[in-house]
Nucleic acid binder design. Structure first.
Length: 353
DNA sequence: CTAGGACATCAGAAGCTGGC
DNA sequence: GCCAGCTTCTGATGTCCTAG
């Protein structure tokens, strides 16, 4: 690419479509006003009316900017904690929007990027229950406890696949709608259109990705609920005032009326360090006998994690066919801390009666 | 000295909860 | 109904180590 070409690309005002949508969603740095469809529409239509009624006037951009400022400040006047972020947003927008044409890009971003994007994200299911529950039930019906590992893996896979398909449908639909709209505007060149459409897709993927994390975690909690329910294992109340740093999804009461905490995760990553601060004496204080971790992706379970948590009466349930499970079971220092998932129900049953 | 494996750590929007 | 606070997870990035 020639340097003149690069410069031209950088200067193209449509690039801001991406940056605006980024700013409208980033909550740490700015306020996430881009999530409020109603506000976005109000902003867009107000700005558009000003442009129409003041055609050819040099005041137009000043009027638009002031309106934008008023609308946003009014929206956040009640929340003190957002003050600095609102200011940052307004200041940076002020620097980025210099002409009426720049403002047109902003309007388009609000109306034709943010709103459809929000809708598209909303349409993606936020849990995969509906994709999986029935299939999971058939596995347990047919294969019994041997099917347990399959069910957990399947729940993961199917759910992910189902939701990804839903994401594909949404992005394709929204993309087409935006493309048609841009085609109608004769002032928008092919290149401009590419810039806007790619920005749109990029931002969609980022947000869908965040939703995916949330969903994956939630669906794993669903699967434990489902399994315990299937085997008629009653859940106990969580111990009062027990503040584990890692979330415990279910509690089960043992025959000597202690408790077993069940925590379901896809991976442990760095989160285990928080747990390790909870000494086993604290567990005893709350009459917690064990913490069972059901982990479906175990490749990052290091020896250090296993020994440290294992020493605090944490037991790990890993997929039956996993490499880490085989390794740990044959290791003198680790074998007491891991169990195959297929034994999960059996182990709980042994504890409760 | 480099490539690649094994983990750890970082970043950050979504979404839930509980308070008002 | 709104808001603050917290937790969720993943993909990217960083760090360290080892084999060749």
């Amino acid at each position: 690419m020639q340097s003149s070409e690069i410069l031209q690309q950088i200067e193209n005002r449509w690039h801001n479509a991406y940056w605006f949508s980024r700013m409208l969603i980033n909550k740490d740095k700015y306020v996430a006003l881009g999530k409020e469809n109603k506000l976005l529409s109000t902003i867009a239509s107000s700005l558009r009316i000003i442009a129409k009624t003041n055609r050819n006037s040099s005041d137009t951009i000043i009027l638009q900017k002031q309106t934008l400022r008023n609308l946003i400040e009014d929206r956040y006047k009640k929340t003190l904690s957002t003050k600095i972020r609102v200011e940052t947003l307004l200041r940076e927008l002020d620097e980025m929007i210099l002409t009426v044409e720049d403002m047109d890009v902003f309007i388009l971003t609000c109306e034709n990027i943010m709103v459809p994007l929000n809708d598209a994200i909303k349409n993606i299911p936020s849990d995969d229950k509906e994709f999986t529950e029935n299939i999971a039930k058939s596995y347990l019906d047919v294969q019994g406890e041997k099917g347990l590992a399959t069910v957990i893996n399947l729940w993961d896979d199917l759910g992910v696949k189902g939701c990804l398909t839903a994401e594909r449908t949404e992005i394709t639909r929204a993309f087409t709608a935006l493309r048609i709209l841009l085609n109608k505007d004769l002032t928008v060149s092919d290149e401009d259109r590419d810039i806007v459409l790619s920005g749109f897709t990029q931002e969609f993927e980022r947000r869908a990705g965040q939703k995916r994390k949330q969903r994956a975690g939630g669906s794993l909690e669903d699967v434990t609920d489902f399994i315990l329910d299937y085997y008629n294992i009653k859940c106990a109340e969580a111990p009062v005032h027990f503040q584990a740093d890692i979330e415990v999804d279910n509690w089960v009461k043992t025959k000597d009326s202690w408790l077993i905490g069940i925590s379901c995760k896809r991976t442990l990553r760095e989160r285990w360090k928080q747990v390790s601060s909870a000494e086993s004496s604290i567990l005893s204080k709350f009459k917690i006998k064990y913490i069972f971790h059901v982990v479906t992706y175990d490749e990052d379970l290091s020896d250090e994690k296993l020994t440290l948590l294992g020493g605090h009466r944490h037991i790990f349930y890993l997929p039956d066919n996993s490499r880490r499970l085989e390794y740990a079971l044959n290791h003198i220092g680790l074998k007491d801390y891991v169990r195959p998932i297929s034994e999960f129900i059996n182990d709980i049953r042994k504890e409760i009666k």
